[in-house]
Amino acid sequence: MTFSRRPATSQTGRVALKRAGGQGSPVPFLIPALLIVFAVLIFPIVFSFVVSLFDWPLSAGGGERRFIGGGNYVALVQDAEFWNSLKLQLGFIFIAIPLELLLGLGAALLLNREFQGGRVIRALILLPVFFLPIVSGMTWRFMLQPRYGALNNFLLMLGAPEITWLGDPVFAYVAVIIQDIWRMWPFVFMLLYAGLAGIPTDVLEAAEIDGAGFWKRLFRVILPLLYPTILTALLLRIIDALRIFSEVYVMTEGGPGMATTLFSLYTHRQAFGYMKVGMSSAMAIFLLLISVAFAVTLVRKNMSLEKLEDQGGNR
């Protein structure tokens, strides 16, 4: 944004602003946002913590609320299904995200040049990121149906036996991961592509003139310069993957059995399946602490206010 018609700056203006700044207070401008944040973020978090200290049945008919201190947390540690959901969640993060980073980086390197239709292709590749999460989950569920699903259609053509993909614990878990990779690697691509475009071309040309081969340029020049962007992408993906729910919920409903009951799905099941709101809240607090740890790291490392202010209004 450039403002061509700028009012003349004057000494009196500066003094007037300073005086107003001295008298003026940001509080009236901040209060509405703070009220909302308090009502729908801070209070629910505190309330969650309180609930997590109770044996708290969802419906009134489920019995009395009873204070049990850390009882829910102890019960969680002893709950095999809790460990199972944590294991599935970590597996999901450790398999999906590295692959998304690799694919995103590879595509960014490859498409970071002029070629016919480049602009259009780069724009269209991003569409899955904006695919409604539940529609993505349901479309994958549809494609993996036995008999009429697209994948089976194709395999039957090749003479393979019919497989109920989402009925098999291992395949269902893999399918959930593939769904996420399909949907989110373009997100990594988008960030890294912008990062690459930000590397001055003369730096790359200088390396090329010095006779550095592709791999040398990649590891010695490109990756070090791209590191902050890669870190941002990684942290954003981790924070996002920690809370995955809707895609998996509509795709497999956490099944078969508990095979795809990732952390949020188990938290949901504790509250609305087993009616144990206290247990569910204990899980919610656990997830919250992990997410906050990653979010604070991200914000501290890569999203300083100064950096944001430097962006100006046009990027």
Binding site: V37, V40, F245, V277, L287, V292
Partner: peptide
């Protein structure tokens, strides 16, 4: 910064309390 961190909280952590 706290506004940004708030944006990144998992919905699952809030929904039961809400």
């Amino acid at each position: 910064y706290s506004f940004l961190v708030f944006r990144m909280l998992p919905q699952m952590s809030l929904v039961v309390a809400l």
